[in-house]
Design a binder for these strands. Structure first.
Lengths: 216, 216
DNA sequence: GCCTTAATACGACAATTGACGTATTGGTAG
DNA sequence: CTACCAATACGTCAATTGTCGTATTAAGGC
């Protein structure tokens, strides 16, 4: 059995160092490496037969957090371990929110890295103890930092938000219409407009995006 | 240098098993053991020169969560690792809230237990990968406190959970099939079975229910 | 060895959803 | 005043989804 790995890091020297560490383990196969998120996404578009991605955070073009979010949305089966030099709360929290399955530091030794990969592929999460401590602290008192910066100007009308709230509980068009005393046609039209504003094409995507933007 | 450890467990047989595991490591000294929280507190009252406590959760008189809370309040310098047979979300979350520095399962092997103790005393946190994953999920999806009574026994297979994860990001049957290298028919069948188990009739309802039960 | 369950897969049909286009009405910001 | 937009509403069509039945194979429990 082989473990198909991809590495994403803007420092080609560090990519080499990671490869070196993995070279001790025969079943680990580094399928490809990328220097930034966009490059990775292009490669996955071509072939998504990858088990796990080792991802740096600070990268040009598309950083590790945003890349993780996209990969997890499109290919939820692919595991992602953040492998970075920095361990500030902000990064850890955002990486976890984006869907990362683990968070390790670059100084890690080969065996621990390998163990982390295997444990993650077996359905666990990889974390070194100092990161684990930070996640515990985050759980005890949650950060409530909102990313104000990437708030694209999404402006839904009052009615649209109302419809979205109904949508989010899994109701059908007809039931929503009954609840709001509207014609099903109207509900459909509202939803159509919502999709356009949110740039999505299904109920679930709409609900997800709305939640990420704290609309509902 | 010696590591001064206390063990608290209502099962004296299990206390013995833990001692056995620690016996491989010379610098570990089990200073005392207790069969419940009150007993421990009494002993600490007498002498609190202890580095770390290995604490069971389910105990008579005073359970591990409450005991942790008291110990951490009175002797914050003492590290506490929960060492228990159960890993349900409720316990993990409460233990962390109470101030635990780690959470390990009793089935652990001697070396990992020792490593966990050392790492915790070095200012990290001890967690095995499955617990780590649960903390990540809790961070992503703040626990919706649900009453024990309506905890129906929902048991989805590994594959079903995988499919559900894909569903949750808003992917269509065909894309899920591509991602998991399955036929669309199979994905549909899995989803049909998931719906039956969760007693729901649509994607959104399934995702919602799964989130409420911390399945995804 | 037998039974059960998980995982795989197909076909068919009805219901729902998503994407168009079109249209009327009422409020409000220039 | 008028241009714009929110809210209402209908129709159509293709795609997706939900539900049913059926079937094979592999793995695990008793």
């Amino acid at each position: 059995m082989s473990l198909k790995i991809a590495i994403v890091d803007d420092n080609s020297f560090l990519i080499h160092a990671i490869k070196e560490k993995l070279s001790f383990f025969d079943e680990v196969m580094v399928k490809h490496t990328s220097l930034n998120g966009s490059e990775l996404l292009a490669k996955l578009e071509d072939n998504h037969n990858i088990d796990l991605i080792l991802m740096d955070i600070e990268m040009p073009v598309l950083n590790g957090i945003e890349t993780t979010q996209v990969v997890k949305q499109k290919y939820p089966q692919i595991k992602i371990i953040m492998l970075t030099a920095f361990d500030n709360d902000e990064n850890i929290f955002n990486a976890i929110k984006a869907g990362a399955d683990g968070y390790l530091l670059k100084e890690i030794n080969p065996k621990d890295l390998y163990d982390g990969i295997v444990e993650t592929l077996n359905g666990g999460a990889a974390m070194n103890p100092s990161i684990a401590l930070k996640t515990l602290k985050l759980l005890r008192n949650p950060l409530t930092i909102e990313n104000e910066k990437d708030k694209e100007d999404i402006s839904l009308s009052k009615r649209e938000i109302e419809v979205l709230e109904q949508l989010s509980t899994g109701l059908s068009y007809t039931v929503i219409a009954e609840n709001l005393f509207l014609s099903p046609s109207t509900v459909r039209k509202h939803i159509e407009n919502i999709y356009q504003k949110l740039q999505v094409h299904s109920k679930i995507e709409a609900v997800q995006k709305a939640k990420r933007h704290n609309i509902i």
